[in-house]
Design a protein around this nucleic acid. Structure first.
Lengths: 202, 202
DNA sequence: GTTTTTATGGTACAACCATACCATCAAACT
DNA sequence: AGTTTGATGGTATGGTTGTACCATAAAAAC
C-alpha cells in the first residue's frame, strides 16, 4: 500500500474543511462535494474516511463540542493565573461573545449545529447537554467561593445566579451573531451585570 | 374563471403548511413538495401563489415576525389589565419560554429562521433587527416607571437591565428549545431574576 | 516475487429538487 | 355568445446530491 497515512490527521483535515465550508455558506449548504473541494481532496476520499455524510456531520459536531470545551478551559487557565473568582467567571462568559472573525464563525456553526440537532434525529444532540450542565456547576461553585471571600453579594442564590449568567451570555452571544448588537455592546452589558453581583468595595 | 379565490387566504394557508412542515422536520428539510403535500394542494399551486421557493420562504419569515409581534402584544394586553410594570415585564419575557407544543414549534422555527438568515443572503434578516430594538426601549420604559413607583430598585440602569432581561429570556428560551432545561425550570429562574430587580416590600 | 492490503481517482446512478412549460375548465366580461 | 382571464393539474427538464461501483498504483506481508 502507499504512503500509509495517519487516519486521524486526515479526518481532522476533512472535518476542518467542513467547518470552514459551513462557516462560509451555512451548515445547511454543506455537501460532500463542497467539503471535498474545500479540503482539496476527491469526493471519494471523503467517503473513504467517513463512509456517509451523516457520519461526517456527526464527527464534525463532536469535534466542535470538544473545541468548545478547550476554548473555555483555555480562558479559565489564562484568567486563573491572576485567579479571583470574578475574573474567572467573566473570562468564561466572555467566550460566548464573538469578537474576532474566527470566534464569530466558530460560534455561528456551533449554534447552527445546536439548532439542527433539535429536528434532526440522526444528530441526537447529546454533546450540547453535558457541557452546559458542567458549566452551571462550575459557575455556581465560583460564586459560592466569591461569597465566602466576601466579594459577591451574600444573599444571592449561587445556583440560580449561575443559570442566569449562562443565559445572559448565551443570549448576548446570539444577539451578536444575529447582528443585533456589536460585540462591544454585549461586553459592556455583561460587565454591568457582573457589577450587580460583585459590588464594588471602596 | 372559476371560484375567484381570496389570494391572501390561500397564501396564508400555504404559509401555515410550510411552518407546520418546518416545525416537524426542520426548516432545512422544507421543500416545495413537502409544503404542497402539507397544504393538500398541487406543487403547481404553490408556484402559482409564490413564484419561487425563495419568495415563499421570505413570506413565511415575514408572517412569523408578524405573529411574534402579535404574541407579545397579546401578552402585554392580557397582563396590562391588571397593570403593574413588573407583571407586564414578566408576561413579555415569559413569551420566549415555550411551554406547550404550539409555542415550542413556533419558537423553534423562529430560531431556525433567525440563524439561517445570518448565512443566507436572500433572507437579509431585517425582521429580526427592528423588533428586539423596540422591545428594549419598551422594557426600559417599564423599568423606569417601576422605579418611579418605588417598585424597582432605584440604583439600576433601566437600559442595561432591559438588555439583560432580553438576553436572559432569549438564553433561557433557547436552552428550553435545546432540551437543556424544562420550561418550568426556566420560568423559575426568570422569576428569581425578576425578584432581584423588584425587591419585596414587606 | 507473488499476493494481499490500503489509499486513492473517476465515474455512474438513482433520487430528488426547483422550476418551466403545456393544457384545461369555468367564471366574468363584452 | 364569444372571448378573455384567473385558477388549477400534470408533466418535462436540467441540475444537484449522496452513494455505489470499478479501477489502479504502491507498499507491506509472506
Amino acid at each position: 500500500m502507499p504512503k500509509l497515512v495517519d487516519h486521524e490527521e486526515r479526518r481532522a483535515h476533512i472535518i476542518d474543511a467542513l467547518l470552514r465550508s459551513a462557516a462560509r455558506n451555512g451548515l445547511h449548504a454543506v455537501t460532500m462535494r463542497s467539503v471535498a473541494i474545500e479540503a482539496d481532496v476527491s469526493v471519494r476520499l471523503v467517503q473513504y474516511y467517513f463512509d456517509t455524510k451523516e457520519q461526517l456531520l456527526l464527527a464534525a459536531m463532536t469535534r466542535l463540542a470538544t473545541r468548545m470545551g478547550e476554548r473555555v478551559q483555555r480562558r479559565v487557565r489564562t484568567a486563573g493565573t491572576t485567579a479571583d473568582p470574578r475574573g474567572i467567571i467573566e473570562a468564561v462568559l466572555l467566550e460566548a461573545v464573538p469578537t474576532d472573525e474566527e470566534s464569530r464563525t466558530f460560534h455561528l456553526v456551533y449554534t447552527e449545529y445546536a439548532v439542527l440537532s433539535v429536528t434532526d434525529p440522526a444528530l441526537g444532540g447529546q454533546p450540547f447537554l453535558a457541557a452546559p450542565d458542567e458549566m452551571e456547576s462550575f459557575l455556581a461553585a465560583q460564586l459560592t467561593a466569591a461569597q465566602q471571600a466576601g466579594d459577591a453579594a451574600p444573599h444571592l442564590d449561587p445556583r440560580q445566579e449561575a443559570v442566569v449568567l449562562l443565559a445572559v451570555s448565551a443570549g448576548l452571544g446570539l444577539s451578536v451573531l444575529l447582528n443585533q448588537r456589536t460585540a462591544d455592546a454585549a461586553t459592556t452589558v455583561l460587565h454591568y451585570h457582573l457589577g450587580r453581583i460583585f459590588p464594588d468595595r471602596a
